[in-house]
Simulated scan of single mutants.
Amino acid sequence: MTPMTPHPTTTALRAGWTRGRVELIQSFTNGGDLLSHFLWPALMLTVMYFMRDSAFGSQGLLLGTLALPSILGMNTAMGMLSMSQVLTAEREDGTLLRAKATPHGMRGYFVGKVITVSCGLAADLAIFLVPALFLIEGLSVADAGSWLTLAWVLALGMLATLPFGAVLGSVFTSTRAQGIIQLPVLGLIAISGIFYPVTALPDWLQSVAQVFPIYWLGLGMRAALLPDSAVTVEIGDSWRQWETVGVLGAWAALGFALAPLVLRRAARRESGSSVAQRREKAMRRVG
């Protein structure tokens, strides 16, 4: 009897899982990558330390307490930039071309990158959060509900942002172009209530912020880790968790519909000559 051929999706998932696991292990055993895992959390902890005693408004809330969960949401969204940078770099060095040449290679490649970036991101957030819990007072972390909310916001947030990192990494063909991506993302961070409550901004800026995932990630993290009294600084005096699910879910659905199409289009344009040309340009820049 002829054995059944595995379904292409199953094959891609298995290959992606293996690829992601190997790359994740490498990132935590390589000195340079390991430093990057600790550098950003260390910088954010330094910011939190100096903000920890600053009061906001007349409610008795501390700015550091308000900012800590928002920073978790911001860092989750920044995984989009990590995904974009990785894909752009691997287009330049020919990794994407090699993935294209294997059966179901692009699916497995995408799954592997999602696993690598998301697990690395979760580790970075843990490196930041654990010591921050000892530095910052007033957080609501004593019950299981807080951690459950934190978990689903983190998972849904990564699903909403990482596919768009793949899209950006497919569109921008040079690592130097990544600076173009970072500028609007930093602008969104500035208006999304990360370091200061969004209700302090003009109404039109609040409306712009609510279109994008960064605001909702910060709001979801605040809903998980802040006491109920802190809701008074939010829009409508509400954590709006159903709205958070709806907006992040919509971004996730759009991203997973768009990313495979853009990745396949980028892969079709890859060739040995195009990789060689990009390497030659990179060598000229270094020289």
Rank of each mutant, 00 (worst) to 15 (best):
T10G: 07
T11K: 07
A15H: 09
R21H: 04
N30V: 00
G31N: 02
G31Q: 02
T46W: 13
Y49Q: 14
F50G: 10
Q59M: 08
S70G: 15
G79P: 11
L81R: 05
S84I: 02
R91L: 10
P103G: 06
P103I: 03
H104V: 07
G105R: 08
M106A: 13
V111D: 00
G112L: 02
S118F: 05
C119I: 11
L129V: 06
A132R: 05
F134A: 15
A144Q: 04
S146Y: 09
W147E: 05
A151M: 10
A155D: 01
L156W: 05
M158F: 06
A160C: 07
F172R: 01
T175F: 02
A177V: 02
Q178K: 08
L186A: 12
G187H: 07
S192M: 03
S192E: 09
V198P: 00
S207C: 05
V208L: 15
Y215Q: 08
M221D: 07
P227F: 05
D228K: 03
V231C: 00
V231P: 05
R240M: 14
R240A: 15
W242M: 14
L254D: 02
P260A: 09
L263R: 01
R264K: 15
R264P: 03
E270K: 08
S271G: 13
Q277N: 04
A282M: 11
M283Y: 08
R285A: 04
V286T: 09
